[in-house]
Amino acid sequence: MASRRGEFSPQGRQAFYFALLLAPPLLWLGIVYLGSLATLLLQSLYAVDEFTARIVPEFTLATYRQLVTQPAHIDILLRTVLMAIAVTVASAVIAFPVALYMARYASPRLKALFYVGVMLPMWTSYLVKVYAWRLILAKQGIASWGFEQVGMIGALDRLLEVPVVGGPSLASSYIGMFVVFVYMWLPFMILPLAAALERVPQSLLQASSDLGASPAQTFRNVVLPLALPGLAAGSIFTFSLTLGDYIIPSVVGAPGYFIGMMVYQQQGTAGNLPLAAAFSVVPIVLIGLYLMLARRLGAFDAL
């Protein structure tokens, strides 16, 4: 029997339902996410009238030139990127043993406890945690009290005397800011790492050992390469979260500006939307470069 006009064939109907199912998320992704990103990029190319400070929709690279030539701006970029790198490296170093223990050695009960323990801090308000840390790290806070109790207040003082990263107290130094950043983003490193390590079959580790590899060699040749995708995912979280954050640097730490604070200030009080947009393009470019590098280094080969 010939199919009547106006009736879907089975394949056509399936395609229709498929489109119906995919349309909302794709629209959301396309308009809300990629669309606003494109707008942002576009805004960063707009000119600013020097007298009226009005935004003129004329394309210019002047904002970007300003971004990479003004010493104050270069300082902000460098400061943010160095902090992001330091936080990422420290998170990876701290997270790896924790994730390894969770994934490979902990009993099922202990593992569940670890997962809850890692995620519990994320159930608390972000702002509450930041302000709590300011109190913890304050001059008369429990951190310095603790150092005093164990007789290491001298060591803390000497640490705070280190130029640039030091300061009058932990709460007003880059060291303190670094500590808070690492605390905040550590779960985002531990969870993907643990997931990656959990996927490594036990037999691969046994095979490595069986073929004569010492535990250190097995770690270097098998565990680490297979954990790289998780490490890459985790480091993208910690790196980009640090690059974009503006609350931690404004509550804890030295007075120097960070990219996020600059974006907040430029699009808010200063009203220089193109400069704010140009600043926010920096993390996007950096993450893009980082992903390319990770791919080149083979971080995703094991996927």
Binding site: P201, S203, L204, Q206, A207, S208, D210, N221, V222, P225, L226, G298, D301, A302
Partner: peptide, 11 residues
């Protein structure tokens, strides 16, 4: 040892 699942290193 030759493992049941072969345990070849995927990377």
């Amino acid at each position: 040892t030759v493992f049941q699942d072969y345990a070849l290193f995927p990377h």
